[in-house]
């Protein structure tokens, strides 16, 4: 009985701390600075599509991932609104080699590629529309 109460209290406290921490950083867009990520640039063949002339928004999703749907809508909207921007959604589970190469650990994760396929920004979770726009490389 007492042990049970202690376990419940401990779980709720730890989960609350994790939940608050996660809420704060979910969707935050990290830009890679000049020259982009140290990883080699992606080419269209890695993704199975042509890269966008200005930017490609690469979204890693999984079938059971609830927030992936919101990200899909948001990124598709940006690709629709901005010339030269493409949105590509990749099933992370079926592309584990690519996932490993890019250091993707959870879904949804979004990479922003410039026209040359270099990773210029990444975000896990649901990024805001404004942040996605701000992360697009200049034309």
């Amino acid at each position: 009985m007492i042990e049970g109460v202690v376990v419940v209290a401990a779980v709720l406290v730890v989960a609350t701390i994790f939940g608050l921490w996660h809420r704060r950083r979910d969707g935050a867009v990290r830009t890679m600075g000049d020259g982009g990520d140290e990883r080699p640039a992606l080419v269209g063949a890695d993704l199975g599509v042509e890269l966008g002339a200005r930017a490609t928004l690469v979204q890693f999703s999984s079938a059971f991932c609830q927030p992936c749907r919101a990200v899909r809508g948001r990124l598709a909207h940006v690709a629709d609104q901005v010339d030269g921007v493409r949105h590509v959604e990749i099933d992370a589970e079926r592309n584990l080699d690519l996932v490993r190469r890019l250091g993707i650990v959870k879904t949804p994760t979004t990479l922003v590629l410039d026209g040359a396929g270099r990773i210029v920004a990444r975000a896990s979770g649901v990024p805001s529309l404004d942040d996605v726009h701000a992360a697009l490389p200049a034309t």
């Binding site: 939940g19 608050l20 996660h22 991932c65 927030p67 992370a92 996932v99 959870k106 949804p108």
Partner: peptide, 11 residues
């Protein structure tokens, strides 16, 4: 929190 723990750990 509406947090999907499976999304965090499954991949």
């Amino acid at each position: 929190f509406g947090l999907c723990l499976g999304c965090e750990v499954y991949l």
